[in-house]
């Protein structure tokens, strides 16, 4: 019995140690850092000065942080509704027995294979460009001119549309896997009972996709919180308020910006902690609101 315990410890120790060193230590360090004034991320502990909750108070009073959170929430809510709805629609269509299913599935997923940098460049240079962009040309054909898609008023929405375009395929695949898991005899029975396709979707497909929704909402939340590259691409030289999101603000605070050498790793850690709390809240609320253990199939 003792031998077995030794074996168990031997096998689990590397994993436990890795988890503690690679995950738990950075998490604890970040939380502790968020209460200190620290210039450089890797500064020695002796250079830290205790700030109490000042870093958090500073954040909540910062116009840029508030704007960044607003932008992130808009991406999460509006982008989330758009992405998950379109993803679900495509998934339902592709599992309804249409022809060329594999081709359409691959085509819709394709943006996920392409580098986000290339994708964002394509949208900025070839879709939104005021001189030769696709949207400008199409609207120009109908006599609508003078819309600056990348002006301060529309830039956020331009970025969001481009992001949703790139994200739909990923969530569609998860929905497809969920729909294909539903036994076909449920649909056959419903058809015999006289239910049409819409009724089948509302009464069978949607309820049985609850767990998939939970998964997708969690993935989407994490995706929104780590929304960095698209924001950087849509304001490439310096951060703009219309596209700023918390991780970009975090990056600027921790590493400084062009022409501004102020660095504050403590405030950066505080931003990280608030984002982690946001994810935890979303996960908790989603679990409370969407119960999937009442259905078995």
């Amino acid at each position: 019995m003792k031998k077995n315990k030794g074996f168990i410890i031997c096998f689990t120790l590397p994993c436990v140690l890795t988890l503690l060193i690679m995950y738990l230590y950075p998490v604890i360090r970040t939380v502790v850092m968020s209460f200190f004034g620290i210039e450089s991320v890797t500064a020695d502990f002796s250079d830290w000065t205790f700030n109490g909750v000042d870093n958090y108070l500073r954040l909540f009073g910062s116009a840029t942080y508030i704007r960044a959170m607003q932008n992130m929430l808009l991406i999460w809510v509006i982008g989330g509704i758009a992405t998950l709805s379109i993803g679900l629609l495509f998934a339902v269509i592709l599992t309804s027995g249409i022809r060329f299913k594999k081709f359409f599935r691959a085509a819709i997923y394709l943006p996920n294979v392409i580098s986000a940098v290339a994708l964002a460049t394509m949208w900025i240079q070839y879709v939104y460009n005021q001189d030769y962009g696709m949207l400008t040309r199409i609207l120009g054909f109908f006599g609508i001119t003078g819309i600056n898609w990348l002006g301060t008023d529309l830039k956020f929405w331009a970025m969001l549309i481009a992001f949703v375009f790139g994200a739909v395929g990923y969530y569609m695949l998860i929905f497809i896997s969920g729909i294909e898991r539903i036994p076909s005899d449920l649909y056959e029975a419903a058809t015999i009972d006289g239910a049409n396709k819409v009724q089948q979707f509302a009464s069978i497909t949607l309820p049985l996709l609850k767990s998939i929704f939970k998964t997708n909402i969690t993935f989407w939340s994490v995706n929104c919180i780590t929304f960095f590259l698209w924001s950087r691409m849509f304001s490439s030289v310096s951060t703009e308020a219309s596209t700023v999101v918390p991780v970009v603000y975090l990056y600027d605070v921790v590493f400084g910006t062009k022409g501004n050498v102020q660095r504050d790793a403590g405030a950066g850690a505080a931003i990280g902690v608030t984002l982690a709390i946001f994810v935890a809240l979303v996960y908790f609320i989603t679990n409370r609101l969407i119960k999937d253990d009442d259905l078995e199939f």
Binding site: R58, S62, A63, T64, Y65, R67, T152, S238, T239, E240, A241, S242, V244, D252, V253, G256, T257, N260, Q262
Partner: peptide, 9 residues
């Protein structure tokens, strides 16, 4: 640093 992006806007 806090207002830079808002001023730019």
């Amino acid at each position: 640093a806090d207002l830079q992006s808002s001023i730019q806007d």
